[in-house]
């Protein structure tokens, strides 16, 4: 979904005939930034982190794996911007590469969670009856789990690693999208356009994916942006417990864990830097998600 579509959903887009697409995207973005300055700040932080993650090899000043016994536990300097850890690895480079893990797991976990949840909600709301009952009991069961414990159990079963972490996170997150989509589908099902589609003989699948899904996209997008912060927090918790991405790949959570095993009392920057990175990422997604919610779907306010 492009920014223009987001703008269009918000009722912000200029008339379709007026300007070429890039202009319309730029205008919609500018209006969003002017209406929601905090959301724009969030978006800028997210953009910086995405750039860090994508171009990590170019941005990192050192090899994140290279240990150096003579340069261990250094405080921030011109050579090592964030200092070095107990093995002499450059912290700045590790934080940059850590953005990859955090964002990758956050985005993929959210995407899959919202995807699974939306499909469940769509099928459940559209078909109703016993299918609805069974799917909703499943959603109840998932929601009754404390998120982190469910993610821990799944990761314990599948084994640690990047892919497994975001699969685990997606399962813990699917309940809310399922409920929201189911609710929206129940509303959309009763509308004239769905009835019209049914009258002309459209199949259930066609009605679900061509006629109902586009109409419940706004709450799905809003929910996804709000859930991203939670996904990043769960990823950080998993890697803090050593069940996320495995070394030597750096993750912010595991950096925090290494720091808290002793060195950090004398070298607080070891824990402060990854901790601040996690907080800043979650903070940015929260700001952006809130703004997007206000613009796209005021009904979700307070949820």
């Amino acid at each position: 979904m492009s920014a223009a579509d987001v703008g269009a959903l918000a009722g912000y887009a200029a008339p379709a005939h007026s300007a070429p697409l890039p202009m319309r995207v730029a205008r919609a973005t500018w209006r969003f930034a002017k209406a929601k300055p905090l959301g724009a700040i969030g978006a800028v932080i997210i953009a910086i982190m995405v750039i860090m993650a994508v171009f990590a090899p170019m941005i990192a000043t050192h090899d994140y794996r290279r240990t150096n016994a003579r340069q261990k536990l250094q405080t921030p300097s011109g050579e090592h911007w964030f200092g070095t850890d107990q093995l002499g690895r450059d912290l700045f480079s590790r934080v940059v590469y850590g953005a990859r893990v955090s964002l990758m797991v956050g985005f993929m976990g959210t995407f899959l969670g919202v995807l699974f949840g939306s499909v469940i909600g769509l099928v459940s709301g559209y078909l109703g009856g016993w299918v609805d009952s069974i799917l909703m009991r499943f959603v109840d069961a998932v929601q009754a789990f404390p998120g982190l414990i469910l993610a821990l159990a799944i990761v314990a079963a599948l084994g640690p690693g990047l892919t497994k972490a975001f699969i685990a996170i997606s399962i813990t997150l699917l309940a809310r999208p399922a409920r929201v989509v189911r609710g929206s589908v129940l509303g959309a099902k009763a509308t004239p356009w769905v009835e019209a589609a049914r009258t002309v003989g459209a199949s259930d699948l066609r009605i679900m994916f061509r006629h109902i899904l586009p109409n419940v996209m706004a709450p799905i997008i809003v929910l996804a942006s709000l859930v991203l912060g939670i996904a990043i927090l769960i990823e950080a918790s998993l890697s803090y417990l050593g069940l996320g991405v495995q070394p030597p790949t750096p993750a912010w959570g595991s950096m925090l864990n290494q720091a808290s095993s002793g060195f950090f009392e004398t070298y607080p920057h070891l824990a402060l830097i990854p901790g601040i990175a996690i907080s800043l990422a979650v903070f940015a997604f929260n700001l952006f998600g809130d703004a997007l919610r206000d613009v796209l779907d005021p009904r979700l306010r307070g949820s």
């Binding site: 927090l233 950080a236 803090y240 925090l256 824990a271 979650v282 903070f283």
Partner: peptide, 12 residues
């Protein structure tokens, strides 16, 4: 407080 992980505050 929604953004700063509780366990980070705990460690600090």
């Amino acid at each position: 407080f929604l953004s700063i992980p509780g366990f980070f505050i705990a460690i600090l």
